[in-house]
Amino acid sequence: MHNIRFTLLALVAAVVTFAVARLIDNAYVFFAGYVVLQYVVLATAWNILGGYTGYVNFGTAAFFALGAYTSVVLHKTVPLLPLPVMMLLGGMISGIIGLGMGYLTLRLRGTYFSIATLAMAVVAQTLITNWNFVGGSRGAYIIRPAESPLFAGDYIQYLFVIMLLLSVISVSIARAIQHSRLGYGFSAIRDDELAAEASGVPTLRLKLIATTISGGLMGMAGAPLPYYVTYLDPASGFSLSYAINTIAMPLIGGTATWFGPVIGAILLGTLQQLATVTISSALSLLLVGLLLVGFVIAAPKGIVGWLSR
């Protein structure tokens, strides 16, 4: 019951956010807001594996881009498919890849998992670069419909609403996990995997559940990307900045709770949007790097840990 009440509250917050954005009545608000929300989803998804179980995933870009490229393929084969269905399929593909990835590497020490995720991102990027059907290294163009299919307004508003709903879903999942048996199992793995295993926690199975959920959500976050950017090439889809952002946001916000990644993503995402507009995009990335290093050194528990002290 508690979880349903939380989801309802989050939905109310989402409706209010959308209403405020409509009131401001500026397309840029939706464009910038979409990116921030996308990072809320990515950071939350990363945290389910990275924060709860302590396995650092450097391959966010791969899961994200696989979702995006699933949409490209679907757009070329079944163009009439509604976006939410594409997102589900993109999420399934990334979830399956997450499961396979976890199965290959999760029996190893944590660092090997991290290195392997990085490796997987490059393998996936090379495959996509050499796959002509989705445009190869030239990239793929997607024409964004002009009008939102659900309500009166621009298509970007529709994308914004979709991402808003996905944020509500992923944050609700993350919160539900945190307070469940699954979440306690995850924390046990993070704190001492050997002890957890010895006390009967099925560590491998739990870790596989975490990689699957985490990868699936990342794929869902990536699926609308082609419609947002309208031109997708492997270098931008697999950009390392997705990986650094999704690691920086939970670590800056605080990894122990569902709330940390959300606050980290909103703060850092907004800051980056502002810095990109006012200064330059290279500087805004530098800012993320500096904040990440500063926070891991000075505030190991992030903003949430800092506030609750």
Binding site: L240, L286, G289
Partner: peptide
């Protein structure tokens, strides 16, 4: 607690060096 934070630290350094 060298594991996660140490990794994130070096990832940040990688990024800072590259962007600089």
């Amino acid at each position: 607690d060298a594991s996660i934070r140490g990794l994130a630290f070096f990832f940040g350094i990688l990024f800072i060096t590259e962007v600089t």
